[in-house]
């Protein structure tokens, strides 16, 4: 029996070794291909890359990751870059990559067609990153949960400090999420640094959980696990279209916003394809794929129609968000350290 056992396994092992060798890289960097790191939702990534493939014949190898993961990966790969274009995801990591010289500048002929807010990061980074969509910060609530607890529906940032909301507000940890960092930077700009931190401390008493991911509170609101969640409005709208109990609010005092961005990786192997993607992604037709896949951000091309579900930026009081200052590594590190020191350890 033992001999047959050995005889049975030996050829199997041999075959496996050969099969594994077959997985060795056949580095396929043929002409007309593009490696895309995509930072928006999977559906959107897929729809856009398929459409681009169909239009140009360029083969797109797309990988979807969160923007923090992409930055970490681009940084780790910087001595032998794998990616060509980094498309989508909140603007801060793009700014950081530009600051660290991980991305390269490009002047697309389409830049002239963009909204001012989309061109500003491009000017600020000397052409290394450009805005492709934007979304305002806000919060959402579960009307059913609020009703069952007899809590009035919140309209403003200040309403969230009401003791009735104790243990009912959920927001991400700014150390892990760009969304929550945008909240911190927003209240600091809206109220001034001292008052802003007073606000965060008061809000801390009502927060039931600092989640890791920025959009997690939206799902918790939909499930009824929390009454209120602070997220980007388009994240909240994405769950609201499936669940009528979820309501999205643009805070009455005014609010900050993110600029979803795009950059070309420095040392890209397929630079020509990367530029074609860049130009294409700024066209109105390409920007419509967001709304088609239920992502309700505001597109950056002036001619692209804003989806009806998207928050009307014109009707929201947007603060003049200072991306140059609050997007810089030093300022971010300082604010995060201060939040860690002064807000997080407080008892509730």
């Amino acid at each position: 029996m033992n001999a047959t056992f050995a005889q049975r396994l030996m050829p199997a092992l041999g075959a496996l070794t050969l099969a594994a060798a077959g997985l060795l890289p056949m580095a396929a960097q043929a002409q007309g291909s593009l490696v895309l790191y995509c930072g928006v939702n999977e559906d959107w990534c897929r729809a856009a890359s398929t459409a681009f493939e169909r239009e140009t014949g360029i083969k797109v190898a797309m990988t979807r990751k969160s923007s923090g993961e992409i930055l970490a990966q681009v940084k780790a790969e910087s001595s032998n870059p794998r990616a060509d274009v980094w498309w989508g995801g909140t603007g801060d990591p793009h700014l950081q990559a530009a600051e660290e010289g991980l991305t390269t500048d490009y002047k697309s002929p389409k830049v002239g067609e963009l909204q001012d807010w989309a061109v500003r990061p491009w000017e600020q980074t000397k052409g290394r990153t450009v805005g492709i969509y934007s979304g305002a910060l806000g919060f959402g609530y579960n009307a059913k949960v609020l009703k069952s607890r007899g809590i009035p529906e919140p309209k403003c940032w200040a309403d969230l400090l009401d003791p009735k909301f104790k243990d009912e507000v959920q927001v991400a940890d700014p150390n892990s999420s760009g969304t929550a960092y945008t909240l911190l930077a927003t209240v600091v700009q809206l109220m001034g640094e001292d008052k802003g931190f007073e606000y965060m401390k008061a809000l801390h008493k009502n927060v039931n959980q600092y989640t890791k991911s920025g959009s997690a509170p939206a799902k918790a609101v939909s499930l009824g696990e929390t009454a209120v969640g602070i997220t980007f409005m388009h994240d909240m709208i994405s769950v609201a279209v499936d669940n009528p109990d979820v309501k999205t609010v643009a805070p009455c005092e005014g609010t900050g916003y993110e600029i979803g961005s795009m950059s070309i990786v420095k040392g890209a192997r397929n630079l020509d394809s990367a530029k074609r993607w860049y130009d294409w992604a700024l066209t109105p037709a390409a920007q419509e794929f967001g709304a088609k896949t239920k992502n309700f951000q505001v597109p950056s091309n002036k001619a692209a129609p804003t989806p009806p579900e998207a928050p009307k930026l014109a009707e929201i009081k947007l603060i003049p968000y200072d991306f140059a200052k609050y997007g810089s590594s030093d300022e971010r590190r300082r604010l995060l350290a201060k939040w860690d020191r002064e807000v997080k350890p407080l008892s509730k």
């Binding site: 923090g68 970490a72 950081q96 760009g178 890791k212 995060l336």
Partner: peptide, 13 residues
């Protein structure tokens, strides 16, 4: 484990 993950990919990088 989560702290390490977000130290690498989180806002503080």
């Amino acid at each position: 484990s989560t702290k390490i993950f977000f130290a690498i990919v989180g806002a503080s990088q």
